[in-house]
Design a protein around this nucleic acid. Structure first.
Lengths: 356, 356
DNA sequence: ACGCGTTGATTAATCGTTTAATCAACGCGT
DNA sequence: ACGCGTTGATTAAACGATTAATCAACGCGT
């Protein structure tokens, strides 16, 4: 079934019309000089025969497969659907297919996954690295979506600005003691988000960072984070750097009898699928994945087709992998206010429900 | 960069050794008759030159692209990471790459997405339909992963049995009034799960089905489901047909001051990523996606390579799309007991924490 | 009438692999 | 010594598209 087997090819169209294959090829691709009338006839019979060009033949001749690779070292990441959908859409608009590769969390398999893609002849690849793993040269243009502070990053959400948005939101609500919840201090993305939060707050607001990884070293995976104690210590807001951790915080607080948002506010990041359906619906920050994907794909396609803008990192332009760059490398994140955030301990009002 | 451009090809290896390309090809693929010694020499120089076979050349000659398509009409489905990961892994083990296609929820785009894949020359495709949409013929072998009650289904989790497992778990805990929570009565999967639950319960256990879609028609998306009232009515367990709905139920109950699992049990389906981290950790049912994917891919690859077992639906074997079949079509689901389920209203004990 | 540029189409080579057909030795039985 | 099967390697023809080079008319100015 590969690539139009048994289906009509250029030859069949050519003989059907009594012309040469070259003419047919030219007519269908607007290349050489073919009379308008003949183009018309070729087009119609091609359509009538249900002609579909063979990617294999074209790839062999042109050296382009029309396929991009998408490498997700951590496919279990709940952001994956958003990313895959956006990348697939942007790629298909640009006329490319998307081949997925997964290293199943294992860093060593990332290299293998990449080489699998290369063997399949991808023209370029989009890599969403986890925790700043180094990208070995792939021998083709590569776009990296991570965060601005990662060297070689092509484009990403402006996690720093996103953090600042959340911080201002909580500060304006009146919170003065905020607990920041992250998973791993090794993640560039999480560090940027936390950095952004802190940067937007002056000395009147106290913050403290809680790393889940640290706590789970003792308590085991899924253990309680001790947030009820934090409430006792005066924290009125809990800003997690991912909706996953926000969810954990939310349920832990509720279970401990802390009412949200009345007694404590909880915010997340990424607007994952469950953010609107939990109760109270989660205030969070959404990344514009569609725009990010479009920028990444555009940069990648430029590098592929023109050898155009972007081959950064100063070394060898033609060989090795070329990390592509884009003019816009930070896409703003958007605050989504729902019910999980509100002013700290106001007697009993039932507040803030803009979005959702 | 497509397909080993500029890289060494068979010809280069052949001239380097002073043999013919055919011999090299035969040596590398164990086909024709080549002396063991020569095979050895060819292998080593091929490796030394970093030879990677050109998929394009091979595809053109053999009519096989070595690529499968994965069609997800509802990519926003949180199950997607599990599915994509399992399919990608099974496919790569079988020597195939996976091209993703997404119809962004729109049913009309499903056909377009499929034809995009066909144009790219996929050898076959795996389709995970949403709500029993019909699959137009794709012109290549197709494996369908949905549920047993869907006509043409190739393989899937045994949702019915999964439902029965959950039902027995709750019954054995002592629950006698269980609320079943589903999203849409149009979903075959959800109906099978609910059917399975009911089938395992005798008349001593009362059940009632709550369809979220119906409630949201009035209350709007994300509205409260009125579960606190249900508790008043004597329901002690809430069995959702997806972790997403279980999560919604859990947070709604907790927010209403109903303690879980002391005053009410909540269970889900699918063991999505947040199931272990919410508090209390969610009791749920896990599907063995790895096995399902392996069965689907095996059946698909059989159909592709041998024209082997499976071309169902009685009509034309060679043309049209061929829905493949597998010997095993139902893969059992596995109960994962965590903290969100327990016996109904036992005075004050702090119970059941097997798994997690 | 001759040369020349333009238009419109064809010829043929090429991409890299697979594979059927062919061919050259060589050993061996008769 | 001749024929014959076997082994080990080569030749050459595909697969389907792209594209540079070529070629046949034709119109037109001088």
């Amino acid at each position: 079934m590969a690539t139009t087997r048994s289906g009509p090819n250029l030859n069949r169209i050519a003989t059907a019309l009594g012309v040469s294959v070259a003419t047919v090829s030219n007519a269908l691709s607007n290349k050489g000089r073919v009379s308008a009338e003949l183009v018309e006839r070729i087009r119609t019979t091609a359509a009538a025969l249900g002609y579909v060009p063979s990617q294999a033949g074209r790839a062999l001749r042109t050296g382009r497969s029309g396929v991009l690779g998408l490498v997700l070292p951590d496919i279990a990441n709940p952001l994956f659907p958003q990313i895959a959908q956006a990348i697939e859409y942007a790629a298909s608009v640009a006329g490319y297919g998307v081949l997925i590769a997964d290293s199943r969390g294992d860093i060593g398999m990332q290299t293998e996954a990449i080489s699998r893609l290369v063997e399949r002849g991808v023209d370029g690849m989009v890599i969403v690295p986890r925790r700043g793993t180094r990208i070995a040269d792939a021998g083709c243009p590569v776009a990296v979506i991570d965060t601005s502070s990662t060297p070689g990053n092509t484009v990403s959400a402006d996690h720093w600005q996103g953090g600042a948005e959340i911080a201002r939101h909580l500060r304006d609500l009146g919170h003065r003691k905020i607990l920041l919840i992250g998973a791993s201090s090794a993640s560039n993305v999480q560090n940027d988000r936390i950095g952004g939060i802190k940067s937007a707050l002056d000395a009147t607001v106290k913050t403290e960072v809680l790393w889940i990884e640290k706590i789970e070293e003792r308590g085991g995976p899924g253990c309680l984070l001790g947030l009820a104690d934090k409430v006792q210590q005066g924290f009125t807001a809990f800003a997690a750097v991912s909706d996953l951790h926000a969810l954990r915080a939310l349920t832990e607080l509720q279970r401990a009898g802390v009412s949200v948002p009345d007694s404590a506010s909880v915010t997340g990041f990424d607007d994952l699928i469950w953010a609107p359906v939990v109760s109270p619906a989660l205030t969070t920050i959404r990344m514009d994945m569609a725009t990010i994907a479009e920028i990444a794909i555009t940069a990648l396609v430029n590098a592929i087709e023109k050898g155009g803008p972007g081959e950064a990192l100063a070394d060898e332009p033609p060989p090795g992998s070329r990390l592509v760059t884009a003019e816009r490398s930070r896409v703003p994140m958007q605050l989504v206010v729902r019910q999980s955030s509100g002013p700290p301990r106001p007697a009993k009002t039932n507040l803030s429900a803009e979005n959702s």
